[in-house]
Design a protein around this nucleic acid. Sequence first.
DNA 1: TCCATATTTCCAATAATATGGAAATATTGT
DNA 2: ACAATATTTCCATATTATTGGAAATATGGA
Lengths: 106, 106
Amino acid sequence: MENNNAVSALAALAQENRLAVFRLLVRNAPEGLTPGVIGEQLELPAPTLSFHLKTLAQAGLVTAIQEGRFVRYRAEMAGINALIDFLTEDCCCGHPQLCIPKGKQE
Amino acid sequence: MENNNAVSALAALAQENRLAVFRLLVRNAPEGLTPGVIGEQLELPAPTLSFHLKTLAQAGLVTAIQEGRFVRYRAEMAGINALIDFLTEDCCCGHPQLCIPKGKQE
DNA sequence: TCCATATTTCCAATAATATGGAAATATTGT
DNA sequence: ACAATATTTCCATATTATTGGAAATATGGA
């Protein structure tokens, strides 16, 4: 993962509302949800939510597909995995003994 | 890890210069570096660097200890590990089969 | 075609962040 | 006490992010 992409993904998640949106989509993976439902659940006005969804999409953390009159947003697992891997390697580089995330403990 | 702490940590790393500072400190763990050396390596003016170090410290990603006239900053591995775990659980919650980071693959 | 509903764009106000010069503070060696 | 060096705080400026009302766009159903 490029440095730039990592910064984008980190910034996308570094915001309360966007983090909540992303988590909601993960809990509703793989089907995804429409902005209408997300906005209702999280009590976000439509323009605000649209702005945040766009930010998450640009960061590669969600994808959108049109379904008739609705749009279905889905959490992009490849995106979050890439971010986790970036942080893991970043954190461990050169000093693996200092940084053994749960997942790496045999 | 609390939601708030996660947002702080994400925001701290979601900035080019701060990410560079953190990575430099990880590469120089566990000894750490002084702001003088960091600023020289990354070509950052002292006040700018000080601001970023403070942000990283508040997010629990670095620690500072005074050493005579110098201050030694160190990467806080517990902090980055907590963030990685937060993202991993966040990402996997309810749908582990969709999200298997490298580290978790058997 | 016309209406109802879903979503986004436009836009302006507001808030939060980043930057770095100048000055302040702290510590060590003389 | 003084000079030299390290780091931080102060502060003004510039940049970027967030918010949501109003209007625009898009789609399906009557």
